[in-house]
């Protein structure tokens, strides 16, 4: 697996830009949480955001699908573009944006509904299926992509909350990809999982790269090294360094990155 990702990494460097951020600032009330972040995220790539807790990596992630809108005191300035379109343009409907930019959260949060309804929820609200057969197909496809189909196909009607932690998180991933997003944001998706479930989800992330641009926030450097091709290091609200993952981990340019990688801060 280590070899494979290494080969992929060299292949993906020439991809086109999916998300570009310029001079992004985020304030929570009077707290300046994100300062001057500039980053360009490539399509069909796994990009990892790493950094000590409270460094703003999750906050920045939540800017990309405007989840920060749901927090009253949060204020975002600057320019974030997806496929060249400013997502903070007043004409943009966050609802449409979020259909395009899916999100998986830190703790598995399946709805108190059946497994089927959990996955079908997104397609239903966005009207992606013309009929029941369509919907069944989407659900199956998503569950298969999330590597959950074999475990769940016989219990589609049982509640999603009855699954194990790792299965729940894969259900949430299936739920997110059922809406056919172009970007998938993952906010520490493995922090609540045990090592085996983590390995399964990481494997899944690598497969998802075929279809989506994946951005993953993680507090685990090993995880970043395992799954990502590009890595961004955040510290105290600043984007300190952004480069190919192997470069960050073997030859960081900034002394702060170096300290973090070697375990002196964080």
């Amino acid at each position: 697996m280590e070899d494979m990702t290494h080969v992929d990494r060299t292949m993906t460097t020439q991809q086109n830009i999916k998300i570009s951020a310029k001079d992004v600032q985020v304030y929570y009330g009077n707290n300046h949480a994100i300062k001057d972040v500039n980053v360009e995220i490539e399509d069909k790539t796994v990009t990892a955001f790493i950094g000590p807790s409270g460094c703003g990596k999750s906050t920045f992630l939540r800017c990309i699908n405007r989840m920060n809108d749901t927090i009253d005191v949060a204020r975002v300035t600057g320019d974030i573009r997806i496929d060249g379109e400013d997502i903070y343009d007043p004409k943009v409907d966050p609802v449409q944006l979020r259909a395009k930019v899916g999100m998986v959260f830190q703790k598995p949060n399946p709805f108190p509904k059946s497994i089927y309804d959990n996955v079908a929820y997104g397609p239903k609200i966005h009207g992606l299926a013309r009929n029941k057969t369509d919907l069944d197909e989407i659900v199956e496809k998503s569950l298969r992509k999330a590597a959950l189909w074999n475990e769940a196909k016989d219990r589609l009607d049982s509640p999603g909350t009855g699954l194990s932690g790792g299965q729940q998180q894969r259900l949430c991933i299936a739920r997110a990809i059922a809406t056919a997003p172009e970007v998938l944001l993952m906010d520490e998706p493995c922090s609540a999982l045990d090592p085996i479930a983590t390995a399964q989800v990481e494997e899944l992330i690598d497969e998802l790269r075929q279809s989506f641009s994946v951005v993953i926030v993680t507090h685990s450097m090993q995880q970043a090294a395992r799954v990502s091709q590009k890595t961004a290091f955040f510290h105290l609200g600043n984007l300190v360094e952004y480069d190919d993952t192997d470069k960050i981990f073997t030859n960081p340019q900034d002394p702060r990155t170096e300290s973090y990688i070697s375990g002196r801060i964080g």
């Binding site: 997806i82 379109e85 997502i87 004409k91 409907d93 609802v95 449409q96 009207g127």
Partner: peptide
């Protein structure tokens, strides 16, 4: 296939109503 974010599609308009 690719729709622009800047244009609100009919379904979204309905949902927003």
């Amino acid at each position: 296939m690719k729709s622009s974010l800047l244009v609100s599609d009919a379904r979204t308009t309905k949902r927003n109503k």
